[in-house]
């Protein structure tokens, strides 16, 4: 019988960076890209199971696609208690969205300062190469100095969209295995 782990994945970042597009493309296995923009109000919850390679285990990701608009922040943060993993998204054509990353990270971490959780930094819209203003290096540097894993994706071209989610699921699973080793030494 497979072991099912459950992880709450909070997706954060400025509005219009493509958080909902990313989560919906991932959730639908690439069959659904929302062509028209819809503003997310509050939080939308999507659940998707990820199989962990070389094991019988799977991680159910409870993906909390959070509104990026400031006006919803008060509502949004009420859904953020006990995050397991975090996905921070910005738009490579928007400097503002990149600058906001520190703010979003701080907001998530203030939820549970004593608990460590795996996180990824996702640079979205890499298909808009001509309009790109944030270099891969800037993204990587920010990720590294904040303990995040860096990913470049295009939700529109369905490029690399699964990678950051798979990474988070695997990290969570790894953490579980590490804790088990610790638990076995307690008695």
């Amino acid at each position: 019988m497979p072991t099912i782990l459950r992880a709450k994945c909070i997706v954060v970042g400025d509005s219009t960076v493509g958080k909902s597009a990313l989560t919906q493309v991932f959730h639908s296995d690439g069959t659904h890209y929302p062509k028209n923009y819809t503003l997310t109000a509050g939080v939308e919850l999507l659940v998707k199971a990820v199989n962990i390679p070389d094991s019988n285990d799977c991680v159910e990701l409870y993906i909390y696609d959070s509104a990026g608009k400031e006006i919803f922040y008060e509502i949004v943060q009420k859904h953020w208690d006990h995050p397991s993993v975090v996905m921070l998204v910005y738009d490579v054509t928007s400097e503002t969205s990149f600058d906001s990353c520190a703010k979003w990270l701080e907001r998530v971490r203030s939820q549970k300062p004593e608990m460590q959780f795996p996180g990824v930094l996702v640079a979205n819209k890499i298909d808009l190469d001509q309009r790109r203003v944030i270099s891969p290096k800037a993204g990587k540097d920010f990720a590294q100095s904040n303990g995040l894993e860096y990913f470049e994706v295009s939700a529109k071209e369905m490029q690399q969209v699964e990678a950051p989610f798979y990474f988070l699921a695997n990290e969570f699973h790894k953490m579980y295995k590490e804790r088990l080793e610790q638990f076995k030494t307690l008695a």
Binding site: R6, A7, V59, E60, Y62, Y176, R179, F183, A187
Partner: peptide, 21 residues
């Protein structure tokens, strides 16, 4: 590997573990 029966098996060496959330 860590079933709930471990909670009442009379042994401190075995345990039940929560798997997230």
């Amino acid at each position: 590997e860590y079933p709930p029966e471990n909670i009442i098996d009379g042994s401190q060496d075995t345990f039940w573990v929560t798997t997230g959330l």
